[in-house]
Design a protein around this nucleic acid. Structure first.
Length: 489
RNA sequence: GGCGCUAUCGUCUAGUGGCUAGGACGCCAGGUUCUCAUCCUGGUAACAGGGGUUCAAUUCCCCUUAGCGCUACCA
């Protein structure tokens, strides 16, 4: 059963909207499989539905995929540019009696289905046009009657082997005479997918499990064309579900890759999360780089049951990824998010004396202390806005540690002030500040550090006073302590 | 309705013909600690039901149930 064909896979989206999570997952698994096996990862644009076509959609999808780290090999195939090819192959089936013209109107088809439904039968084309004579067909076409071409499903049973779901067997009597060519001359998905996968020499089809029921039609088409030997392996992937266990649909909003991107999730985290939905390495590892995913990807480790998209888990994975990133890397990715924040804009305007270099240095310090606190990039600075503004609110109650008196608090703030004043600008490092302050605090840490932290931040919650003073710098730190002392009379 | 697929903690999942059914997220409780976050420790919680097969089934088979998908001149 070993497939010796060169690995060639494709991602084949319809340009009808934004790339959504399910699409990313399909693309990712194709990509991982191709890279793992030294194969090619191709793009095919399935734009055969003119009614749902969305201008610019394809460009945005490609951009989102690139953001996620997926790059295509070779030139894309555009189905709307290949109409003549499909017609040619359909003609071949007609000539061989494997497909037929159908002139039934939508109204007649609807009536037929209604009747079938009433009689509790499976809605299926009744082959009304199957036995039209060649002359009849010719005459109707000459009269300008609209037609489609239908696939004449042969008798028997269709069996195929899916790499995830195993053997699937369907009786042909349950399969409808599928339309292959639409009235407008465009192929349906079923025809185009088979013809193109054959011509593109696709070795494996990774696609969502919603395609499992129509795969027998495709298998039958391969047989009708005599392409059994070239038939790709099928790899259907269990669907991603929403909280109510329905298939995650692009109509629900907030499932588009662009949305997650806009929320500041690192691409590597989204990819990690998506990869683990329906696949797992059978080890304890949870956090993966793209390289690790490629190395460990294995079709035999894919699940058959659908998985629920759990945002809590994504958040955790995202935090883990950010924690593992360098300050430089976070800076590059998070800056665009920071630049949208009002507190940053104000700070940026006020600090006109600072050079761009100095500003970058300051932001990187903030990132250093926020690294372990970020779930996504757009949270940057959110909880530490006192680092962007001098107008901090200090209340005497917040300055006092437990039941310390105002006097104790004043003394402790003065002690801190002294310590910080004695550290030179060149020694103003996180380690130094921490060391010196802790030396002074001795075993009464709260007495010294709590008022200091509050004086520096004006907040009940914040990073440690070491970190905050390190970021603020000597001058600002001293200024804030002095102004806090004014509050404690 | 017809056809197909699926079924382990709330969620993602590991796993085996015999185990205290494992891990992770979440949640809860403790620890570290100047607050917050991180980090550490512990706790919570699952084999859908019924029949078989078997000395023994969560695991293999069948049925039921439930969920999902498909049932378009959409993909």
């Amino acid at each position: 059963m070993k497939n010796e064909k060169k690995v060639r896979v494709r991602f084949a989206p319809s340009p009808t909207g934004e790339l959504h999570i399910g699409g990313l997952r399909t693309a990712l698994n194709n990509f991982l499989f191709a890279r793992k096996n030294g194969g090619e990862f191709l793009l095919r644009v399935e734009d055969t539905d003119r009614k749902r076509f969305v201008e610019g959609s394809m460009e945005r999808m490609i951009e989102d995929l690139r953001w996620a780290g997926l790059e295509f090999d070779g030139e894309p195939y555009i189905q709307s540019e290949r109409l003549e090819i499909y017609k040619e192959y359909v003609q071949r089936l007609i000539n061989e009696g494997k497909a037929y013209y159908c002139f039934c109107t939508p109204e007649r088809l609807e009536q037929m289905r209604e009747k079938q439904q009433q009689e509790k039968l499976a809605p299926k084309y009744d082959r009304h046009c199957l036995n039209l004579s060649t002359e009849d067909v010719k005459k109707k076409i000459e009269n300008g009657e609209k037609y489609v071409v239908r696939f004449k499903i042969p008798e028997g049973t269709t069996i195929f082997e899916d790499l995830v779901f195993g053997k699937v067997e369907v009786k042909n009597e349950n399969i409808d005479d599928q339309v292959l060519l639409k009235t407008d001359g465009f192929p349906t998905y079923h025809l185009a997918v088979v013809v193109d996968d054959y011509l593109m020499k696709i070795s494996h089809i990774f696609r969502g499990a919603e395609w499992l029921p129509s795969t027998p039609k495709h298998v039958l088409l391969y047989q009708a064309f005599g392409w059994e030997k070239e038939m790709p392996e099928f790899v259907h992937m269990a669907n991603i579900l929403n909280k109510s266990k329905k298939k995650l649909s692009k109509r629900e909003g907030s499932v588009s890759v662009a949305d997650f991107r806009a929320q500041g999730y690192p691409a590597s985290a989204l990819v990690n999360f998506i990869a683990l939905l329906g696949w797992n390495p059978k080890t304890q590892q949870e956090i993966f780089t793209m390289q690790e995913l490629i190395e460990q990807f294995d079709v035999s480790k894919m699940n058959r049951a659908g998985g629920v998209f759990d945002i809590d888990r994504l958040n955790w994975i995202s935090a883990q990824h950010i924690k593992r990133m360098s300050v430089e890397e976070i800076y590059i990715q998070a800056l665009p998010f920071l630049e949208k924040k009002e507190y940053y804009k104000k700070w940026n305007a006020v600090q006109s004396a600072l050079s761009a270099e100095e500003k970058e240095k300051y932001i990187k310090k903030i990132i250093t202390i926020e690294k372990d606190r970020l779930e996504k990039f757009d949270q940057i600075g959110e909880n530490n806005q006192f680092l962007f503004s001098d107008k901090i609110q200090i209340s005497p109650d917040d300055l006092r540690w437990k039941d310390s008196s105002n006097e104790d608090t004043r003394n402790n703030l003065k002690k801190s002030l002294q310590v910080l004043e004695n550290i030179s600008e060149s020694d103003w490092t996180l380690d130094n500040i921490e060391k010196k302050l802790l030396e002074t605090a001795g075993d009464k840490r709260g007495d010294l550090l709590f008022p200091l932290r509050s004086a520096l931040t004006g907040e009940k919650k914040s990073p440690s006073p070491f970190e905050v003073s390190w970021v603020l710098g000597k001058d600002t730190s001293i200024k804030r302590i002095l102004s806090a002392l004014d509050f404690l009379v």
